[in-house]
């Protein structure tokens, strides 16, 4: 059975795109067929992790939303860019990184219903096991619909005061939307924090299951999105923690 997984955070800078790219890669390494839709149309970024430049991006999600192409035509097979010999597949549906097209989307908005039809088409036509949706931070109508149709919502937050209030609202709203499964990933945890205490504190506050606690990691920061962390550091503790998330998602 295919699963749609929204990956969301209330604020930017939580490591959402990086985590999405790594989860997709780890799933594909297990032989799964994975799609990623970058719905962060206003500030796209995940294409960088897969080494896609402006010229490599033919059709984008914007083109699909403007009726210029089918969603399948906007899907880029980036599997071999990640690492040769991955048994699964990784398809990326990027957002346009052209300033004019970003401006147009911000100005005009888009039909969220069409976007969600696109998700079903992708699952079917590319025979995906997992479809990961990299959402735009915050709570707007388009994001809410993506969350609403997801089988799993993965909320990423940092242990930072700026993230707490907004994340608590996001989590509550998601539950009212009827999202069947809600998981939390705590990212960029300062090394001196007590992990057990933090996990309890977050589960108590947000009333949701924490599936991964990822400490701040110098190797990850210095990689600066040049590469997929899980490929470069397959045996790292952070990679092991992300693998656990995949197991939970597939369970």
């Amino acid at each position: 059975m295919s699963k749609i997984i929204s990956i969301h955070s209330f604020r930017g800078g939580t490591g959402k795109s990086n985590t999405t790219a790594n989860l997709a890669t780890l799933a594909a390494m297990q032989g799964l067929r994975v799609g990623i839709v970058d719905t962060d149309i206003q500030s796209p970024g995940i294409h960088v992790l897969f080494g896609l430049e402006t010229d490599d991006i033919g059709n984008s999600l914007n083109d699909y939303l403007w009726g210029k192409c089918t969603i399948k035509e906007a899907a880029h097979d980036v599997t071999s860019r990640v690492s040769p010999g991955i048994p699964g597949k990784i398809y990326l549906i990027p957002s346009s990184i052209k300033a004019g097209e970003i401006a147009r989307v911000i100005h005009e908005g888009y039909d969220a219903g069409l976007l969600n039809e696109g998700f079903s088409d992708l699952l079917e036509e590319l025979k995906l096991d997992l479809l990961l949706i990299d959402t735009h931070p915050g709570i707007n109508e388009e994001t809410l619909l993506s969350l609403a149709i997801s089988d799993i919502l993965l909320v990423i937050m940092r242990p930072d005061k700026q993230d707490f209030q907004g994340t608590s609202v996001t989590v509550d709203v998601a539950l009212k939307l009827g999202v069947p499964s809600l998981m939390m990933l705590v990212n960029k945890i300062p090394l001196q924090l007590d992990l057990n205490n933090l996990k309890q504190e977050i589960e108590r506050t947000f009333n949701a299951e924490v599936v991964a606690m990822i400490p701040h990691c110098d190797e990850l920061m210095s990689l600066a999105s040049e590469d997929i962390f899980a490929v470069r550091y397959p045996d790292h503790a952070v990679t092991a923690e992300l693998k656990k998330v995949i197991q939970k998602m597939l369970a």
């Binding site: 709570i139 242990p159 005061k161 707490f164 209030q165 608590s168 609202v169 509550d172 709203v173 009212k176 001196q192 924090l193 007590d194 205490n197 933090l198 504190e201 977050i202 506050t205």
Partner: peptide
Amino acid sequence: AELRIEVDQAKRDQEVKQIT
């Protein structure tokens, strides 16, 4: 290292209600 997470519960409920 023990981080206390504080959320304004009244504000949280109000915002959730507003959206939903």
